[in-house]
Nucleic acid binder design. Structure first.
Length: 284
DNA sequence: GTCCAGGGATTCA
DNA sequence: TGAATCCATGGA
């Protein structure tokens, strides 16, 4: 099927939001829920999509963050001089709407870690603990649910490469599996309430909580601040040099409101592309 | 060998 | 409340 988009697949799928998409022969292969999904760039930013088992266009458009509300968000941000260049350069950058538990596990893994290694760890978690997807035309595994991770041994999680984060992920899985934190019920709740609940999970602090909220709980105003975004903000707004993350966040919320999450992703993407430019350090 | 990575937990003042 | 320190691991 064809989705109008526009979607910039590399920027969206390898932009530090999701970690399990791979480019194979010009197609992006990934797993959404319990479906294997293949995405290929079409004309004018459109996307040709296939899913096993079959999925509706609405389902895939929802995952890819397509819709009039998102288009309007982009248009508003493009009017901001601090973002217009990035917005114009990446008209198809999207905020994915991912599964809350998988996103939680991914960003617990992300703490003090690099993207390349995060990808490897999550892939091993899936192949070691996730159900194989029988309909998939390539070897694919669903991401293991919280109950499965809760039962896993710490040694098996360390074997996936989690290091000291292994007990964090296991204990967070136990809390989610027991219903102590109901991730799905947090969707659409106010950001403050989402944060308060998420931060109860081991390995989840303010930054990771904001990533989970933005990428899986529809918190469009969340503004996760990592080292890259902090640098980007200090560059874009010199008066923020040396500011604390909480003050930078307050500034972003004031300036962009419920569009702050999208603004953050534009900044993150732009600064990382800059780092990856020829002659500088490569993207890791 | 050293530094860094989409930070968080713990400790101490 | 805020600063310092430690944490596994692998690539550059």
């Amino acid at each position: 099927m064809r989705l109008a988009g526009p979607v910039d697949l590399p920027a969206t799928l390898q932009g530090g939001q999701a970690f399990r998409w791979r480019l194979v022969d010009g197609s992006w292969r990934g797993v959404v829920g319990r479906r294997a999904v293949e995405l290929r760039a079409g004309r004018a930013g459109a996307v040709n999509a296939q899913a096993w088992p079959r999925a509706t266009a609405t389902f895939l458009a929802g995952y890819l963050g397509l819709g009039p509300a998102e288009d309007a968000r982009r248009a508003r941000l493009a009017d901001d001089p601090a973002l217009s260049a990035a917005a114009l350069a990446h008209p198809g950058l999207r905020i994915l709407r991912q599964d809350p538990w998988e996103t939680t596990a991914a960003f617990i893994t992300s703490a003090n870690n690099n993207v390349l290694r995060i990808e490897g760890i999550l892939e091993r978690l899936a192949s070691d603990h996730g159900d194989p997807l029988k309909d998939a035309p390539w070897p694919a595994h669903a991401f293991p649910d919280a109950r499965t991770i809760a039962r896993a041994t710490e040694a098996s999680l360390r074997a996936a490469g989690l290091g000291y984060r292994a007990p964090f992920l296991r204990d967070a899985a136990r809390m989610v599996a027991k219903g102590e934190v109901d991730l799905d019920a947090l969707r659409g709740e106010p950001l403050d309430r989402q944060r308060a609940a998420l931060v109860r999970l081991p390995g989840v602090g303010p930054k990771v909580a904001d990533c989970i909220a933005l990428f899986s709980l529809d918190a469009t105003g969340a503004f996760p601040i990592d080292r890259w975004v902090l640098r980007a903000m200090e560059t874009a707004f010199p008066r923020l040099a040396g500011a604390r993350p909480r003050d930078v966040e307050a500034f972003a919320r004031e300036r962009w409101g419920d569009d702050a999450g999208f603004a953050q992703q534009l900044l993150f993407h732009a600064v990382r592309l800059q780092e990856a430019a020829p002659g500088t350090r490569r993207l890791t």
